[in-house]
Each structure stands twice: as C-alpha cells, then as structure tokens.
C-alpha cells in the first residue's frame, strides 16, 4: 500500500509555490515519512521557519506552523520549546536564512544544545530574492550578485555546527529521499540540538547560472558527489575535495539538553 501523506499535509494548499523539480518537496516528504515512522502526532509538532523558498514549507504541513522573520526562526523556536518542552519543535530554513542573517542563532542554539531539530535546505543560493550568492555558494560559482564568479569561500556547515557544539550533526541530499528520511528520523529522535544539512537543488537560480538548468542534471551532480561517511573516510585526501560525506557525521547522546536542565532547576527551586 502506498504511503498516505494526507494526514500531515494541508492538501487544499497544493499545488505548492516551488518551481517544478525543486528539491524542497523531497525534503518535506522525507520529513513526513520520518514523523510517521516516529509516530509523532502532528498536533504535538511545531514547524518553524524564517524567510525564503524553504521557509514556505510549514504552510503545507498540517501542524503548528510558524513562518517568522528572516533569519530568526531558531529564536522563535527557542521560545516555544522553553515554554513547552514537551512539544516537538523542528526548524526548516534555507542556507541564506539560517547561515547568513540567522548564523548567530544557529551557532548559539547548537551551543545551548536545546532539543530542536534544525534542517537546512542548502541549495547554495538565495532563491526567492533572485539568485544572490549565499555563505554556501561555492567559490567561483556564478550568482546574480557574483556575475564574475563568487569571490568568497563557503561554509562547511557540519564543521561549523560541530565546532559550535551541536550534539547531532548529519547530512543528507535530495538525490536519496529514503536515506534522507532515515537521517531526519535520527535527528528528530535525538535529545538535543540536531543539525541536518540537506544538499539540495535550486536549478532555477543556481543551476541556470552554472550550466545545470535541468533539475535532473543538478540532482545528479549532487548525487554523484555524495558518499557515505565510511567510504568518504577511506578516500585519498585529494579526492575528498570532490565529494561530501552523508549520514550521521557526529553524535553525542549524553550531553545535557538545555530545557531538561532548566526543568531540573525549576524542580529544585520549588522543592
């Protein structure tokens, strides 16, 4: 029997506003499959986003959904999670939203180890505003604001998050939805700040400027570079630059989770 997405979607809001072939739909499907595997009741899930194409995802999800200001999704999510530690709080945002204007919140949520799952749909570009370069646009790639090629080096997000103190760091990609769903499920189930980068495609704004206007070509470009962590580890150093590792890259299960620590304080003071 085929999987029924309806209980999780606001069906009447479809068709969605993304371009045909956009990777965000794959991420949303993978999220739903992971919610379903975990048997999370949609009424107990809050999905929070910022601004941009990816941040339109919550509008299609039949849950508590909050579409906030540019870059600030994690701060709103933090307020929700602190007041209702029993709720499942997920943030989904794009690379520009979460790593440029929202970069400060990203590293501090990781440091705090608050039990929020952060999904960054990394399509290497500001899509909604018209293809400007983001902190994850590859060096040399073209963008609306980098007509001669991007002059800035890009973030390695898992490294950034690991350094900031995230207790769960993973990466998936839109070329493998099933694997992505498994990774997301692990992230959702993790008790602490879980960061998941999804390497995704914006063939419209990134691809057209970089000889990958066809979404299938771009997804293939992504898939060909994705290597399971173990295989990636066995590669020669020179080859590593051409690929990226996928899977759970780092996990530490026993680190104190922030809201649990706060609840302990409340209990102690009320005793």
């Amino acid at each position: 029997m085929s999987f029924d997405y309806k209980p999780y979607l606001r069906y009447e809001k479809l068709p969605h506003m993304w371009c045909p072939g956009c990777g965000i739909g794959i991420v949303v499907k993978a999220m739903i499959r992971a919610f379903d595997d975990l048997e999370w009741d949609p009424r107990d899930i809050a999905v929070v986003s910022g601004i941009g194409c990816t941040s339109r995802a919550p509008g299609y999800l039949n849950m508590n959904t909050l579409h906030t200001t540019h870059g600030r999704a994690l701060s709103f999510a933090t307020g929700i999670k602190m007041h209702r530690p029993d709720g499942n709080v997920v943030v989904i945002a794009g690379d520009g939203d979460s790593t440029a204007i929202g970069g400060n919140h990203l590293i501090h949520a990781a440091r705090r180890n608050i039990n929020i799952t952060m999904i960054v749909n990394n399509n290497n570009i500001y899509g909604m505003t018209g293809g400007q370069y983001s902190p994850t646009t590859p060096l040399g790639a073209k963008a609306a604001t980098a007509p001669y090629g991007n002059l800035e080096p890009s973030f390695d997000l898992p490294h950034l998050l690991r350094g900031a103190g995230a207790s769960f760091v993973a990466r998936g990609h839109v070329g493998n939805g099933r694997q992505l769903s498994t990774i997301l499920k692990k992230g959702f189930a993790h008790n602490g700040f879980a960061f998941i980068e999804v390497v995704s495609n914006c063939h419209t704004q990134f691809g057209r400027r970089n000889r990958m206007a066809d979404p299938m070509n771009m997804i293939k470009w992504i898939s060909d570079r994705a290597k399971p962590l173990k295989k990636f580890g066995q590669m020669e150093e020179d080859d590593k630059a051409k690929y990226f590792p996928v899977g759970v890259l780092f996990e530490e299960k026993d680190r104190p989770e922030y809201t649990a620590t706060y609840e302990k304080l409340i209990k102690k003071l009320s005793a």
């Binding site: 809050a46 906030t68 994690l74 701060s75 709103f76 933090t78 307020g79 400060n104």
Partner: peptide, 15 residues
C-alpha cells in the same frame, strides 16, 4: 533580535 523572537514564540505557545 533573538530575544524578541523568543518572546513571541513563547507567547504563541501560550506564555
């Protein structure tokens, strides 16, 4: 900005 974000997030959760 984050402080203001938490305040609105918590409010929407009922605080």
């Amino acid at each position: 900005m984050a402080a203001m974000g938490t305040v609105i997030g918590a409010s929407l959760a009922g605080a």
